[in-house]
Amino acid sequence: MKIFIIMGIGILIGRFLMIGKLKKWNERLAMLCTLLLIFSMGVMLGQKENFISELSSLGLKSFLFFLIPTVVSIIFVYILTRRFIDKKDTKGNDK
């Protein structure tokens, strides 16, 4: 809930107070936060007891449990969005 309130405040600031020049800096801030979160996720995993042994013994099963559900989800959403969401500019270039 807290997350959505914070995001809501961000939306209001973006809507009424932000100027175009700051857009780039805001994107950089988002990227920095993401990298810091991923870094802390790595630290947490590295500190987890038995992480390496679990990864080697259950890694293949885990990979399968990542791969198949993800691929089926992608196929389902692609078919459904092509059929029901007529959104222009849905395929494009890296900004």
């Binding site: 914070i6 600031i13 805001n26 994107e27």
Partner: peptide, 13 residues
């Protein structure tokens, strides 16, 4: 939280 705030700004703009 900072990330979500920043994403909020992007949406608001």
């Amino acid at each position: 939280y900072i990330l979500m705030f920043s994403v909020g700004i992007s949406i608001g703009m």
